[in-house]
Each structure stands twice: as C-alpha cells, then as structure tokens.
Design a protein around this nucleic acid. Sequence first.
DNA 1: TCTCGGTATGTGGTCAGACCATAGTAGATC
DNA 2: GATCTACTATGGTCTGACCACATACCGAGA
Lengths: 243, 243
Amino acid sequence: MNEQLPAPAKAYQPVLDSIEAELRAGRLRVGDQLPGERALAEQHGISRASVRDAMRILEVMGVVRSGTGSGPTAGNVLISRPAAGISTALRMHVASAQLSVEEIVQTRILLESWAAEATDLEAHPERSRAVLDEAAGLLEAMEDPATPRGDFHDLDARFHVLLTSLAGNAVIEAMMESLRLSIRDYVAESITSEADWDRVVSTLRAQHREILASVAEGRRSDAARLVAEHIVWFHDRVAKPTR
Amino acid sequence: MNEQLPAPAKAYQPVLDSIEAELRAGRLRVGDQLPGERALAEQHGISRASVRDAMRILEVMGVVRSGTGSGPTAGNVLISRPAAGISTALRMHVASAQLSVEEIVQTRILLESWAAEATDLEAHPERSRAVLDEAAGLLEAMEDPATPRGDFHDLDARFHVLLTSLAGNAVIEAMMESLRLSIRDYVAESITSEADWDRVVSTLRAQHREILASVAEGRRSDAARLVAEHIVWFHDRVAKPTR
DNA sequence: TCTCGGTATGTGGTCAGACCATAGTAGATC
DNA sequence: GATCTACTATGGTCTGACCACATACCGAGA
C-alpha cells in the first residue's frame, strides 16, 4: 500500500525545483508571471509537454493560475491558495476510504477549538475588528430565509474560516478550509429533506451567534467549547444518519 | 492573490471525477490497477495527453503510482500516501512565503500533543504494543553513533509519526507527516556544524526516551507536555538561529 | 486629431502520432 | 525440462500542429 522507492526522476522535476528555488530566494513572488511554457521548455531542454506537467502540478497545488490570452492576467501567474492542494489530497483519500469523514470532523474540532483559544484580538486590533465585522455580515446573510442551501453552506464555511483566521496561523487556517472542502459533498448529500434542513438551520443560526459573541467578547474558552459543540452537534445530528 | 472564478473545465476533469466516483462506490480500491492510459483516453473521448494530466495529479496527490512495463506492478496502480500531496502543497506555499516555518512548527505541536493526549493503548492493545516496540527499535537505532545525520532525521520522523498513529486518527497522522516533510530541508540546512549536531543529538535521545516511556506507561498529559517541549526546544535552539 | 474596429501576436489548451525503455509473457531452442 | 529470445503492452517523452482567447497595435473613418 506504500511505496517510496527510488523513482526514476521525472522530466518535469527540474522545472518544479527551479521554480521552488526561485520562490525561496524571493526572485519569484505571488502575483508574478512565470515565463511562457515554450520559454521554460527551451531553458530546461525539455519538451513543452513536460513543462505543462509541472504547471499542472503547481496549479492543483494552488500555486499558479493559468490563463489564456495575453497581458498581465494571462499566462501562468503565481497565486496562493494553500487550501486548494490540501483539500484535493484529502478529498481523494477520503474517496478511497483511506481517511474517514469522522476523522476529518475530529480534526476540524481540534483545529477550530484551538484557534478559538489562541485568538488574541489585541494582537491586531483593527484587523480583528474588520474580521469580526465581516463575520457578522455573513451571519446576517445567513439569517435571510431566501438564501439557498448551497449559498448557506458557503457562507457557513467562510464564517468558520474567518474565525479561525483570527488565531493568526495561516497553516491551521488553510487546513481548516481544506478539511471543510474535502467533505463538502458528503455534507451536502447528507441532508436530503428540506423539512430536515429547515429544522436544522435555525439551530445553526443560534449557535453561530453565540460563537461570534463569545469570540468578540474575548471569552476564549467559551468560544472553544461552543465551536466544538457546534461541530459535534451538526455532524451527529445531521451528517451521520446517511453515512 | 486569490481567484476562484468559473474556470473553463479542463479536459482531464472527467477522468478525475470518474475515478473519484469509482473510488467512492468501492468499485476501485487501493491496490487495483487503473485501465491503461490509451484505454481511458478512448473511454472519455479525449487525448492520451489529457489522461496523463489526470494521472500526474493523482500521482502527486499520493493516490496512484505509475510504473512502466507490464504485470500487476506496472501501469497506474492505486496506492495511499495521503501525506504526499499535503506535504507538497505545504512545501510550495512555505517556499512562496505564504506559510511560515513557525506556523508549521506551531501546528505540529498542536497535533502531536493532541495525539499524545488522545492515545488510548487499550483500544487496540496488540497493535499498540507492536507500534511501541517498533518505536523502541527506532530509538535504539538512533542511539548508534554511526548513524548518519540524514538517517537520524528519517528515524526521528518515523518515531514521531508512529507515536501520532497511536491516537488512531489517520488524518492527523497524515498531516503530522506532511508538516514534517514540508520543512525537512529547512531543518537539515539549519544545522551546519557537526559540533553543534553532536551537542544536540544527545539531548534529543534523552527526550525521545522520556516521551516513549510516558506514552508506554499511559501518562498522557506527561507525554503531551514532553512532546511539546521537545519540539519547542529543538526549533528554538537549533532551527531558529539560521532563519 | 481622435475614435473605432479589425488584425497581428502571443498565451495556454488540446490533440495526434511517433519513438523509447521497461517488464512481463509466450514461444522457440537446446 | 530449462533456457533464451522475440513479442507485447505499459508508461515516459518528444514533436509539431491547431484552437480559443485576450491584449496590443495600427489603419480607416469621423
């Protein structure tokens, strides 16, 4: 089930290595445009096909965005979406039954409750305030009965990621988002009845309000507890039955 | 810095989707061989080049292993290395300065100390015993002064991953391993002087022994504390100076 | 002179077809 | 029966072509 033997060096590896080195050295930065694929191919003495392999990898890792046409927005542009690659990996391994949804949820509880405990609003007062305001805005949008289920889930996800971001650890924030994305379909599929959904959503709203209030008031341990309870409640009550 | 616009459907996507669906349905399992690339190309009505894009993605995600030749070990075979994809993603984003080594270390402390607290040896007595024995074997190998630095780091990594596995959460185990792999080079480069290394390694050995003992004896909170201190000590004392 | 619109150029996206090294397998040879 | 040799199918790589797209350029018209 596990292999990590020599592996005979892929042709695209030098491209990845050189880009990684340029990034580390600071000669390439987020927002920059990579050289054209044809140019990279010539530079490394490989075919364009192999260069494209490297680009594909960087793309799924959330490191570059490819666009056709010309101009600054076209070409292979360096971006930063750490959660993209992580969530794809998690997703595939959940699909292959090597990771379970229960483990994902458990991990999410760990990360989110830690983030709640580690949140220090005074560290970056103005940024924290902006984040809290944005979170409040999300909750408001979620109050609207006209909000479709899919949109509600997206808002919900953004709410949790926002709160996690207050802890100031981008790694944990990215992992949080990844965990959520990786089981997104499972959650969506688990609630089939609209009646069930209506019954659930009002509780979610109340829990969200409580969580936001405790975070905003600096009641860290309350926030951590409420977040953990919130996640447990949702997955016990809603997601589990169909799994 | 962030884009999540429509994105005009890649040609390889249907291949990924169908493989993911087959995995979820249980019609494909780890160890199975995927159809040949030429066959998949015909099935989906796309070129072999696009099929290879999908394979490349699955490969870096740690979901398939590609091998030339024929027979059961050749072709695109389903494997399971969840840490492969996650660590690559983390690595690239650390390189692009979007994630910091400090955050990686902080996350590792969180996951490992949680695992120590969550370890329940009685849940799977025989498996736990085997894991502890293997961990003890690793420590023994690390006692040998003849062990090269690189090997020591590998043994060290396996030791930590093994202990984490006792908590029984494969997601956290995979993340732990990924975090370690992602900053492997930084750690290796940070200790340049052999004299420094000799001074450090004996402390590491002692800490490892203490950690293993506390885990084996079920002193969970001790284990959690020692692990956290161990990681903090190493990165404060050794890795930080050069960063 | 200014504006509009068509065109040239360069980008990634995809395809078709070819050749290679590899690793089993089946057949021929001894 | 054992050994060696083609044969076959696999992924790995390359070449060269065409497409859709988006900008930049430039000439025709107002």
